[in-house]
Amino acid sequence: MQDGVVLTKVDEFLSWGRKNSLWPMTFGLACCAIEMMATGANKYDLERFGCGAFMATPRRADLMIVAGTVTLKMATRVRTLWEQMAEPKYVISMGSCANKGGPYWQHGYHVLKGVDEVVPVDVYVPGCPPRPEALIEGIMTLQKKIASERLLRKKWIKHVG
């Protein structure tokens, strides 16, 4: 009897399931996307975290990794893609450009100074571009955030604690 029983809270069980089945969107903007692809490939293997199923449509994805320079022309598209994703949705800003404009910060007339100007960002991953380990750490940070969420409250609050 003892071996067949696991005790947990429903809240935590739901969060555990959600955090281990994050589906990112197939979406890359610049050189950071190459590192993101490397992270998804067999050497770094994002699938270990249940995060390797890159969805080809925003409607099936619940994580957007903004990997690369967000130009002003692209920013409106990024916003549209984010709006098309179903709740609950999360955004990782990967690399200096997506964080704060990167090398285009001073004179980039065409670059948005950080993707958080158009979409809310959950985790920032610094680097130019970040190594796959850094992106994995970003995803693990996001997983910790998701694990602390309480889905069964009357008013669902994102990122409690």
């Binding site: 002003l72 409106t76 404009g101 004179h107 007339y109 948005l112 100074k113 100007e117």
Partner: peptide, 17 residues
């Protein structure tokens, strides 16, 4: 050329950043 302050409602050089 002088860089625009706004494009499509987005601030190109946000003061707080």
């Amino acid at each position: 050329y002088v860089a625009a302050k706004y494009y499509n409602g987005m601030q190109v050089y946000p003061d707080h950043k």
